[in-house]
Simulated scan of single mutants.
Amino acid sequence: MYKVTVYVTYKDSVLDPQGEAVKGAVHRMGYDSVENIRIGKYFEIQVSKDEDDIEQVIEEICDKLLANVVMETYRYDIQEVEI
Results as ranks from 00 to 15, higher is better:
V81R: 09
I78A: 06
D50K: 03
Q79G: 00
K23Q: 07
C62Y: 02
K23V: 00
I37W: 02
E60P: 01
G24S: 13
V57R: 13
T5A: 05
G30D: 07
R28E: 15
I45H: 13
T9W: 14
V57F: 09
E59R: 12
Y74F: 05
R38S: 06
V34D: 06
T73S: 10
D52W: 00
V26M: 12
D77E: 14
L15R: 12
E44I: 05
G40D: 06
V69I: 11
V8W: 15
I61W: 05
I45N: 07
E80S: 01
V14Q: 13
Y42A: 00
K49F: 03
A21K: 13
Y31I: 00
D32L: 07
T5K: 15
I54Y: 10
G40Y: 09
E60F: 00
I58R: 10
L15H: 09
I58F: 09
E20Q: 12
D77R: 09
T9M: 14
P17M: 06
E55K: 12
F43D: 08
E44S: 04
Y74C: 04
D12T: 12
K49D: 09
E80P: 03
E55R: 13
I39R: 10
E72Q: 11
Q79M: 07
A67L: 01
D77G: 03
L66Y: 07
M1I: 10
V34P: 09
V26Y: 12
E60N: 11
V4T: 09
Y10G: 13
I78P: 06
S13F: 14
D12I: 02
V57K: 12
M71I: 10
H27W: 13
V8D: 15
T5F: 11
V34K: 11
P17N: 10
E60Y: 04
S13A: 06
V81W: 06
L65C: 01
V70H: 15
K64E: 05
